[in-house]
Each structure stands twice: as C-alpha cells, then as structure tokens.
Design a protein around this nucleic acid. Structure first.
Lengths: 230, 230
DNA sequence: TGAATGTGTAAAGAAACCGTAAATTCGGGG
DNA sequence: CCCCGAATTTACGGTTTCTTTACACATTCA
C-alpha cells in the first residue's frame, strides 16, 4: 500500500499507530526524534508522513519547515494541544492536516485515505541533484560545479533549487516571484532578472548561450537537464 | 481570490462564514438547502464548497455524494457532531476535510488555504500534443517539428496551443483574439493574420496548401490533425 | 468589369523585455 | 557600534517581440 513514516517520541503512540496502520497493509517506518525523522524521509521517500509536534530535540514547526525543503508528499500533524494559533501555523507551514490527540484510529485512517487519494504522481522527495557537471545538496544547501564548491546566497539557492526541481519545465516569472518573494511582489520582475544574472555568473553560465538556465522571453526561465558539450 | 460556496441552513453560521471569507477577499455564494447547494455548484463552479451535514431537506452525506457526481473541487464538511463514524463516512464519501463546530474562523481559513494550495498545480487539461510529425509540450513550452526543435515566441506559442487544443474545429477570429489579446482587440484581425503567418513560417507550412493550419475564410482558423502526405 | 472585402507577406517603427554594472540600503554577527 | 555580505534600488544599452504601415493578390458580388 505504501510507506508511511511516523515521527513521534512516545512509544505508546507509535505502537498505537503501527498496529492500526499495518492492519491496513501500510508499511510503517518510525522515528523518535526530529533529526531521525528528517533523515528517514530523505532516505526512504515515504508516501506520507505523520509528525508529532511535541518532539524532544526540535520544535515541531521547525521540523515541518525543514521537511518541506525537500519533501512534497502529504504531512499530517499530531498534537496534544488544541490551540487555533498552533493549527494555523502548522497548516500554513505546509501541513496538509492537523489532528488533535486523543484521536480515533479510524478517523486518522480516513484522513490518510483522503490525502493518498488526492496524491500527485510527482516524486515526493527532492533532496539532491547531480548530473556529472553540477551537484546540489538541498539539505546542506551546498552547490558543486565541475568539482568546485560554489557559495550561494539564500535567494540564489532557493531559485536554483526551484528551477532544478522542475527541470526542463518553464517556470513563469510570477510563479518564481511568488515562491521567493511572496504574492506581493509578483510584478517586480526586475529582482528576478538580477538574481538570475548573479546565479548565472556563479554557475559560469552566460545568457547568450545558456548551458544551465535558459530564458523564455516574456514568460520565465527553465533549467536545462540535457547538456551536450565537451 | 475565487468563489466559495457555503451550504448551511443556519443564518448565523452563514453570516459568520460570510464575514470571515469576504474579509479575505473570497467571493461567497450561499445556499440554505441541499438542493439549492447542488444547483449552485453546478451553475457557478465554485473553487471550494463548505457543506454542513445537518441540512433540513436532505441527508448531508447524500448531498456530498450527489455533489461528487459532477463536482471535483475541494469540499469541507461542517458538523456539530463529533462522532468518529460520521467523520469516516464523510471523508470516504469524497470530503477533503471535516471540521467540528464550534470552530475558529482562522483554523477554517487555514484549512481552506491548504486545499486551494494543493489544487493550484493541478494537471492542465491540455498538456501535450504529439502526432508523428509535430510535438508540443506545454509545460516545457517546447515544439518539435520533424525532429527539429523550433522556438516560438509567447503569442505564437499561445496561438498554437489554442488551435491544437481544439484540433480540427474552427476557432473564429473573435475567439482567438479574445483569448490572446483580450476583448478590447476582438476586431483587430490584422494582428492575427500576421501572427498566423509567422507561425506557419516556423512550422514550414504554406497558406496555399496548408498541412497544419487551415484558413476558413471569413470565419477563422483550424489546426489539422489528420495529415496524409509523403 | 470593377469596387469591396478578406487574406497573405514584407518591412519599418514602437514598445516591451532582458542583462549587466554600480550605487544604496538592509540586516545579522562580531 | 561597526562591518560585511546580501538584498534592493537605480541607471542604461542592446535585443526580441509586438504593433503599425504598406502593398499585392484572391474572391465575391454588384
């Protein structure tokens, strides 16, 4: 049926979930800390993640945000607290659902079915990119080009990651601006041109004969995956 | 921001939702019975539906099932009852979320954002065209004719995509002009002729013996799908 | 036949768009 | 508080794309 990752520090909750999930033929992976959970997600590409907000090693929302750097599958949040503020924060940070403990296993299973039903067919994990020429590590936010490490600023990195994630597809200027600057700046296309310029310079790319980032005039940019060159 | 339909018989709940939703710039439609709600959904194609299970005229689950016969957007269920059985039934009948009354407006708004966010990158109706001779990839914005990549400008691409989308059917000049230039330019048919000319040139087509784009004099243009040629 | 209308190319002009450089402001760390 | 890298703003030259203008040709219909 698919792998489901449970990130929770309470053994009895994990047991409760393990029993309920395996009964429905899901494969259950378990982690008892945020760090272990993040590692497992990147490694195993689970179909869905269940994340308890009350972890001992990291703040739950931080785990979620880190997870969303590379994991795009559905995430269900568990919490003992029923504060609206916390729900809104988690949902806006990228969670797909929020379930307050205690909860019935059947409700949780139904919510899982809803999310898997709607699931996309795109790969759920984008943790690294590597064709012989250019390597990007999303977790460490590090880039290597032709064997040389290249330092990127925050926005430069986010832009490159976004383009690589949708390689060969054109991302419109509006899509990029929305993602990097927020909806309030979707018309400040000038920011974007400058950022692309800086990124190209660091990649050793040139606009007139692009090997990495290609301009689609009036539309947006695309990252090229097929490089045919010396 | 998009139309949201509220199906609820209690005026105070509708008012509560109307205020909260319009404050976030959603357009709110309202229905106080199941029948009225189904009619409005079919008529208005809202971006999202909020459905109360306790309606006077029909059983809530039945409304949901009927709705799902034709409506595929997100549906949030409201209910005063907190029985697990009911939640499971609703979620399995096609609901995307289930919120128990009383609830905070901010949580509901956050859950709405989650559902609208998920549906935003839904697969486009028309993503690709390919007969042995000509291939168009909409997401990559790439065109290949007889194995050779051909670059199209923005308007050229939009025009070709539109024609291919309605292959073998005639699109009137007005329809095309409206779609590409907006209603203010529906009479500037010169634009269109020039654009068609450029597109034909890039496709290797000629107006007198069209293989791809055929002129329907006095009416418009059509893209030919059945090519019988050497 | 000949005006009127519709269509197809070509080329010039205008506008929008892109890329780079450099100056200025912002913000976090020491 | 100062410093440095990052982010934003300003300025400008070059290019593509879009729009406008011009004209030849075909078809229709009076």
């Amino acid at each position: 049926m698919g792998k489901i990752l449970v990130i929770d520090d309470e053994p009895q909750i994990r047991r409760f979930l393990r029993i309920g999930l395996t009964a429905k033929a899901y494969d259950v992976l378990e982690a008892n800390t945020g760090v272990a959970g993040l590692e497992l997600s990147a490694l195993e590409s689970p179909r869905l993640v269940i994340l308890d907000l009350g972890l001992p090693d990291m703040d739950g929302i931080e785990v979620l945000k880190s997870l969303r750097e590379f994991y795009h599958g559905p995430v269900i949040i568990l919490s003992v607290r029923n504060r609206e503020q916390e729900k809104v924060a988690a949902l806006d940070a990228g969670a797909n659902d929020f379930v307050v403990k205690p909860f019935g296993i059947n409700e949780l299973l139904a919510r899982i079915r809803v999310l898997l039903r709607a699931g996309s067919d795109a790969p759920s994990v984008f943790a690294e990119y590597d064709d012989g020429v250019i390597q990007l590590n999303v977790l460490q936010r590090k880039l290597v080009v032709n064997g040389r490490p290249v330092h990127l600023s925050r926005k430069e990195f986010d832009l490159l990651k976004l383009l690589m994630e949708y390689q060969d597809r054109v991302l419109t200027q509006q899509q990029i601006l929305d993602r990097l600057w927020g909806k309030t700046h979707v018309q400040d296309t000038h920011y974007l041109r400058i950022l692309v310029g800086k990124l190209r310079a660091k990649l050793g790319d040139e606009a007139s004969a692009p090997r990495f980032i290609e301009t689609e005039p009036g539309v947006g940019y695309r990252f090229l995956s097929n490089r045919n060159e010396p």
